[in-house]
Write a protein that binds this DNA or RNA. Structure first.
Lengths: 211, 211
DNA sequence: TAGATTGTTAATCGATTAACAATC
DNA sequence: TAGATTGTTAATCGATTAACAATC
């Protein structure tokens, strides 16, 4: 199987959500021109994306079976086996993620949170207990969590990354706005609101200046 | 000025944060090989990125002046003039964004929130008042907000988008996991956690399967 | 059959990388 | 001067788009 580019991987959850909505509306099949119209991607790209994950060919004049597509993409994305994660930094954003109901259906199960603020220790957020950060080295391996979600301020993010890695984490979902340095064998995915906002406001200014 | 690609735009806030940290450490200059080592980008790319926003050339053997770089990038990103935004959907994520202290230094000022849940109306979150959604058509134009931040569930996101657009919003920062259909003259930037997680878990599985 | 949609193969496009001369 | 770093120009790479024959 060839490698999937980042952009391509990011499209699959969008497809999945869309297909589920169509299923709820009672549809059974979907064609790439229709998907293209609704999602703003090109037909050809959609065909390539779906071909890359599905063995069965589509049917000319009809398209593809929605139920099978949903199943295929969910399997591909790993939604059908649960992965365990811990979260470090139970501030506003951390608490929001702890309370986010949709992770479960994505196969992501956050089992514990850690924070350096003693006032938070012992509290429960979204059903998950918040532990003092000191317990991380001991607890993380026992929870068998491969993924660490980092929602601490930028200044302490690298330190937290080092800690979770030496405790055994293999993947970091980093919400702090800095570049983390990690050894080989650890993957990092950044969610950087400042970057996202930069794109939005540049596009907005571009547009407004053209008027 | 040539167009900036999305990837390129996303790098500037990363540079900026990094340069500010260096300034705090007392450094005055920075070279592209050093940036490359710390941020994981290539030297050539960094030079191109910095050249694209800065008129002054770098100095061989030294690099570029940090203070000037910070000023240049902040101006380029619009951090030095404030833009007004409203937020729709004051759930967990919405409240986290309302309480996020860093938007101010990015020139983004969220002036009001809206929610359909009457229990939230009148409450203040992060100093911002939450209004009933019905007041949006009336209030949004008076606040002169160009940007709408959408943090409602997927099922109502399109409806909210239509509402903010007809009330005058020109840019949507969309945190709902669906593709919004908008007329020309409106820009949308999506923050899709499911997409980000898809990249992370695919890379993780790839790595684990190679061991 | 005709027409819509499929999958494949080739062309285009744009971003990143490499090579190298210029300069403090 | 020597060496590090710069900016520019050309080469590479990969993703997206276009073209088109195959098929239900």
């Amino acid at each position: 199987m060839k490698a999937f580019s980042k952009n391509q991987l990011q499209r699959y959850p969008v497809y999945l959500k869309f297909f589920k909505t169509l299923l709820e509306e009672g549809k059974t099949c979907v064609s790439s021109p229709y998907i293209a119209k609704c999602l703003g991607y090109s037909e050809e790209q959609i065909r390539k994306d779906l071909q890359a994950v599905s063995k069965e060919p589509g049917v000319p004049k009809k398209g593809r079976d929605l139920e099978r597509l949903v199943e295929t993409i969910e399997k591909f994305l790993g939604y059908r086996d649960s992965t365990t994660a811990v979260l470090v930094g139970a501030g506003h954003l951390g608490q929001a993620l702890l309370s986010y109901p949709n992770f479960a259906e994505m196969g992501l199960s956050i089992v514990a949170a850690f924070d350096s603020n003693p006032a938070l220790s012992g509290r429960k957020v979204g059903d998950k207990e918040v532990f003092p950060i000191e317990k991380l080295p001991n607890l993380l391996p026992r929870l068998n969590a491969h993924i660490a979600i980092i929602t601490v301020p930028a200044a302490s993010a690298q330190e937290v990354a080092d800690a979770v890695i030496s405790a055994g984490a293999r993947a970091i979902w980093n919400f702090a706005p800095i570049h983390l340095i990690v050894p080989e064998g650890v993957v990092v995915e950044n969610v950087n609101l400042a970057s996202s906002l930069a794109v939005l406001s540049h596009r907005l200014n571009e547009m407004l200046s053209k008027e």
